[in-house]
Design a protein around this nucleic acid. Structure first.
Lengths: 168, 168
DNA sequence: ACAAACTTTCACAAATTCTTGGAAGTTTGT
DNA sequence: ACAAACTTCCAAGAATTTGTGAAAGTTTGT
């Protein structure tokens, strides 16, 4: 297959996958395109290659910059902004895990903790059951949180990576 | 706070959280309600308590049964169907991880593998870069896959749990 | 076989999320 | 200070996802 075909295929496919990851189609597409591009791209380049509107591309780029998945660059003697993707896969993973933790784990943690604090120690069996569930949920969320921290550490630590491989 | 207030709060909050987990509001709400209920509920009960339509509740219950997060039950001398939630938090975790793997990891795995197979071993630098990215992506996805398997094992294995605690 | 008691389906409505494109705002070189 | 070159914002429209409710379909006891 030709280089451009592969690129197109990947970008399109990744766009579809993105939507089942809670990432908008265009965000996923832009990120895919940039992952495969070894050189920096301007907003125009992206608009043109993916046929997306300026506003959309601008928004998406901002989002990706926020996630630390792409970097802004400038070129001497050119006032346009260029963007280049983080290409190190473990860096990418770190950024995504961090973001997911922020979006998915922390709010749940808060919610459950708040509710747990407002339970009294009444004795009717339903109260007791609810309190139990909340307590368990709470410790479960703590574990997921710990697990995401572990994941972040694993990436930085080859030894850990091997230990994991061993025990799994 | 009163039992019912806590229940309502939790159900509503969980519904909101659910949407940022890729779970529809009503699915999350119904699951929350059932987690806190120690006894089985009928479709009617749920409709009434959450003010949802029959069709919606039916769909949601089917989905939750599919995920193995709730079970169908019947009562002797009553032809209604009742549902009760899996209350063991680690069981719940197992079901959710399995489901996420199916939804999020497997499709990505397939996509990347397919593309990787259609790369040639041409030498122009862009091809090479693309091939590298795809290869790395592929092994990264493999690792995520392995990690989700590990998570599933951890739950069943107290020793493993402790090892993890040690090294993290 | 019938009717009552339930469950499932489905076309439409509502809500949410994503995208567009033009207008407003900034920055930079002269 | 001005104009050119970009970037950002935002309101409206598309697209997608969810939820509704009534009708159709099933099952069960008599």
């Amino acid at each position: 297959m030709k280089t451009d075909e592969i690129k197109t295929q990947f970008v399109q496919a990744w766009g579809v996958l993105g939507t089942s990851w809670g990432i908008s189609r265009s965000t996923a597409q832009v990120h895919a395109l940039m992952l495969l591009s070894s050189s920096e791209l301007s907003t125009e380049d992206i608009m043109q290659q993916l046929q997306l509107s300026r506003g959309n591309v601008n928004m998406v780029l901002r989002e990706l910059v926020n996630w630390n998945l792409i970097y802004k660059q400038t070129k001497p003697g050119d006032r346009k902004e260029y963007f280049i993707a983080e290409h190190d896969i473990w860096q990418i993973a770190t950024r995504i895990i961090t973001e997911r933790k922020k979006r998915e784990i922390m709010p749940a943690k808060q919610t459950v903790k708040a509710l747990l604090n407002s339970t009294t120690d009444a004795k009717d069996s339903e109260q007791v059951h609810i309190k139990n569930m909340l307590t368990e949920l709470n410790s479960f969320i703590e574990q997921m949180d710990a697990m995401s921290e572990l994941l972040l550490k694993v990436e930085k630590n080859a030894l850990l990576k091997n230990v994991l491989k061993m025990i799994s």
